[in-house]
Design a protein around this nucleic acid. Structure first.
Lengths: 204, 204
DNA sequence: TAGATTGTTAATCGATTAACAATC
DNA sequence: TAGATTGTTAATCGATTAACAATC
């Protein structure tokens, strides 16, 4: 009966894994204090977070690298490799397709879909008419959506109908989906708003 | 003596503006309930958020579109247009350069920098040696950083030295900066982690 | 007026921190 | 042992919600 971890804790755990991966490989232990400094939070919070997913440290020593990496990767689901498709291959879609960072994080795009077929890099862009059958045939569960705003909901409905379970939405349109489907909203707009606010305060 | 708005409120305000912009232009008023449903939060919270930035509604009527748009744009800093540069024009950098969504959100990239000069679309990629002087000459305040992890901190130091005040960090390296510099961390890794977790739970 | 919707004050809930005991 | 670091329990803080009064 583990209680679910909060979004804030989850995000900090992702950041901790990043910090550890970027540390020199010979460093075998990390104190909560060291992680806390890098994260910009308190050491108590780091210990709480780690304890909550079953990682415990040793007094006077800290947390072992091995332990941290194994557990964090497990909890964060980094072990698996997932196939995905992308719908809408305009400018944004093309950027994402060409975006090998996704690869390195364990997501591989197997096909793109658009009204007009083409090829981008080594990836085929197929006509939307073939979308549903490919999703079914390859049992794809993840779709990136970067279509024009006015068709976002229609495309979403088709994706779900075909068996997609997780949607990464790069449009600004809030998508309406059934309970069991998860939408991850890209927050470029939020990012830009934050940045602009800081720039504004800079000028004044 | 306005008290500063919280990050969560800020994010909801961004989303509210998006919802309003996407609604049919003839819709002149919005009830807190309607906005709340679209945001997936309670109506009370929507009113609290709006009140906190000085927007008030009218009982039985709701909030006026005009009022919402004007105030939200002002608070969120959408009015201005900001120039930025990008350092590191590898795959990720190129995607960002070609990413006209940034334009539409009020950020225009004026130049890219890399070890080897080139041209991407209509944008010049200049050698890094010219970076500092251009930042000074054009009084650029915002830089997007998408360099290899191992030079991220060095590049950051140069940027700050040249007068950059806000850094949008697309590397995973946590950047160390003075108090008065703001770093906005891109959270692609967090996004991917969230998505993978949902995919994992789907499989079980 | 009656009904709908806003705004405010108090209550609740969850996340963070403080204090301190436990342990290597 | 003494010192450093973890882990736990209680206190604090902030954000959300509930209840209800105000108003068009």
């Amino acid at each position: 009966m583990q209680k679910p971890i909060s979004l804030k804790t989850f995000n900090r755990l992702v950041d901790m894994l990043t910090i550890i991966e970027q540390s020199p490989p010979e460093q075998q232990t990390f104190s909560s204090n060291e992680l806390a400094r890098n994260l910009g939070v308190s050491d108590i919070l780091v210990r709480k977070d780690l304890n909550s997913i079953g990682i415990s440290g040793r007094p006077k020593i800290g947390f072992s690298r091995q332990d941290l990496v194994t557990n964090l990767e497990h909890v964060l689901g980094y072990s698996g490799h997932n196939e995905a498709i992308i719908v809408g291959c305009g400018r944004l879609g093309r950027s994402l397709l060409d975006f090998h960072l996704l690869d390195s994080l364990g997501i591989s795009l197997v096909a793109g879909f658009d009204l007009t077929p083409s090829t981008i890099g080594r990836l085929e862009v197929l006509p939307v008419t073939k979308m549903s059958s490919l999703i079914r045939r390859m049992r794809i569960k993840l779709a990136l959506v970067s279509v024009p705003e006015n068709v976002a909901q229609t495309v979403t409905d088709q994706l779900i109908e075909a068996g997609i379970k997780v949607i990464w939405n790069f449009t600004a349109t809030p998508l309406i989906v059934p309970e069991d489907i998860h939408v991850h909203q890209d927050d470029l707009r939020r990012s830009v708003a934050h940045i602009q606010q800081h720039l504004d305060s800079e000028e004044s």
